[in-house]
């Protein structure tokens, strides 16, 4: 999902190319670019990890990334350029799992926006990971319950076909 001008939010099976992130999150009018890359690490909770499988509800995940990016723009400035890419599929140790690129007029907001986006991704994006260990076992990692973080949007948002009622309750 993207607006083809200043925001790119992509969930993909393709390898993340840092140059793509650099080029998408750039603007000649901006003096700062900040990049965060998350990678698969070889250890977690004392176990040796050989790979991580990422699963996602792609349409909702991309919509959530886009929502997070727009929240950042509302708070730190509408001129921001933002590129968020999240991998899915089975990744080996060292492969990039997520990239967040932010371009802004000055460095302070680019640092803050980058941190905001990655923290919100971990809390809200419908993405899951399964670790593959060196002993052959696998485990889906525990995470954050989405029902505690669901957001209510525009008051007059169209009701999705088949469902009704959209007052926030904040519970599962």
């Amino acid at each position: 999902m993207c607006d083809h001008e200043s925001t790119w939010c992509i969930v993909t099976e393709k390898r993340i190319n840092p140059v793509d992130v650099f080029e998408l999150a750039s603007d000649f009018g901006h003096g700062a670019q900040n990049f965060f890359f998350g990678a698969v690490r070889s250890k977690n909770l004392g176990r040796t990890v050989v790979a991580v499988g990422y699963d996602a509800f792609t349409p909702l995940a991309e919509a959530t990334l886009y929502e997070i990016a727009n929240e950042a723009k509302a708070k730190w400035g509408s001129t921001l350029k933002i590129c968020i890419i999240h991998r899915i599929g089975k990744l080996e140790v060292g492969e990039l799992s997520v990239a967040v690129g932010v371009s802004s007029p000055h460095r302070d907001e680019s640092y803050q926006v980058s941190r905001y986006i990655i923290e919100q991704i971990k809390l809200r994006a419908p993405i899951w990971k399964k670790e593959f260990y060196d002993d052959g076992e696998t485990e889906w990692l525990k995470g954050h319950a989405l029902c505690q973080h669901s957001h209510h949007h525009e008051e007059n948002e169209n009701i999705e076909e088949g469902v009704s009622g959209n007052k926030p309750t904040g519970t599962c």
């Binding site: 509800f57 349409p59 909702l60 919509a63 419908p126 319950a145 989405l146 029902c147 973080h149 669901s150 957001h151 209510h152 949007h153 999705e160 088949g162 469902v163 009704s164 009622g165 959209n166 007052k167 926030p168 309750t169 904040g170 519970t171 599962c172």
Partner: peptide
Amino acid sequence: DSAIADERRVLEANTLI
């Protein structure tokens, strides 16, 4: 602990199908 969603949003607890 799980949420119910469609392709656009996580459904609130008081949503009716």
